[in-house]
């Protein structure tokens, strides 16, 4: 249903780091779940529009008005690593 290699690829995409044992277990569990989900293949969905929202509203807007921003200290208060002005992360250079 899903291979170990696929699991490892999805883990990178999802930014998760799995141990070899976790990857193995994930492969088995997701395999079982996906197999169950193949149940949907028996439903004829030709000419059926997808339904993404339970309530089909349209055109909900806010007016273009400025409201106060958070005080910087409040904004950064929950940051795991920061300085007086900014969030800090390991170098992003070399990444696209």
């Amino acid at each position: 249903m899903i291979s170990l290699a696929e699991i490892e690829k999805v883990a990178v995409l999802a930014r998760l780091l799995l141990t070899p044992a976790e990857s193995q277990q994930m492969t088995e569990q997701l395999g079982k779940i996906l197999e169950y989900m193949s149940l949907l293949n028996e439903v004829n969905t030709e000419n059926v529009e997808p339904l993404a929202h339970a309530v089909e509203l349209t055109n909900v807007f806010r007016e273009d008005r400025v409201t106060p921003s958070l005080d910087r200290e409040m904004a950064l208060a929950n940051a795991p690593h920061r300085d007086e002005e900014c969030y800090r992360v390991p170098a992003v250079l070399g990444e696209v």
């Binding site: 990178v12 999802a14 998760l16 780091l17 799995l18 997701l30 390991p90 990444e95």
Partner: peptide, 25 residues
Amino acid sequence: TALVRMYRKTRAEGFGAEVKRRIML
């Protein structure tokens, strides 16, 4: 890269098994 590993380890340690399973799915 250091940044990607930071993400992956943070999420691996911060989330439990069921959350990870659903994110993967």
